[in-house]
Amino acid sequence: MFKIISAVIGRDLKLAMRRQADIVSAVFFFIIVVSLFPLGIGPEPDLLRKLAPGVLWVAALLATMLSLPRLFADDHRDGTLEQLALAPHPLGLVVTGKVIAHWLVSGLPLALIAPVLGLQFDLSTDALVVLTGAILLGTPALSGIGAIGAALTLGLRGGGVLLSLLVLPLYIPVLIFGAGAVDATVSGLGGEGHLSLLAALTFASLGFAPWASAAALKIALE
């Protein structure tokens, strides 16, 4: 089981490394969106500190959305996906591998860059640590839930916009608990409760979402 997952992860990472521009552009999208907010609302540190968790999280949701359509599209175009579906391994495991690989190239870089952006918003060290932890914990759930949307919209016209329409409402719990963890830390309540719920969401979506995506892929490939 782990052999299949790790084989898929290795393959997807290799493919991603050959097209590094995609990863870099998603990260820069994140940076640019976050940097636009102070320009829009003014440079008062108090206001920025209050807005930082929400702004960073919304930008993270959008940056994840940006790379989702390619999750299955390339494999679908060259026929790899059909071969994977025909293979004797359960398709859900293959999708699990793809989701993890997607997180490694889209979620992980966001978590690494987030503390630097948090500094721009004058967040305290505690808040920065919690912010990084929350993004690390929450982005796998985004990749997992997003995979369902990517599979449902595979090969449709206007797939990207449709994908955001389907997936963004489902991202709301992750947004609430992710931003809530940082908020709670800033206000001195402690973010552990939020982080636990975020971890629960991540594990639940990593467990279930790949199988739902696999069902959606089978519908798309019929």
Binding site: I148, L152, P169, I172, P173, F208, A212, A215
Partner: peptide
């Protein structure tokens, strides 16, 4: 499939 995923998510949301 989207409806079923949605119905699981509605209580969480």
């Amino acid at each position: 499939l989207l409806l079923l995923v949605g119905v699981v998510n509605v209580p969480i949301i």
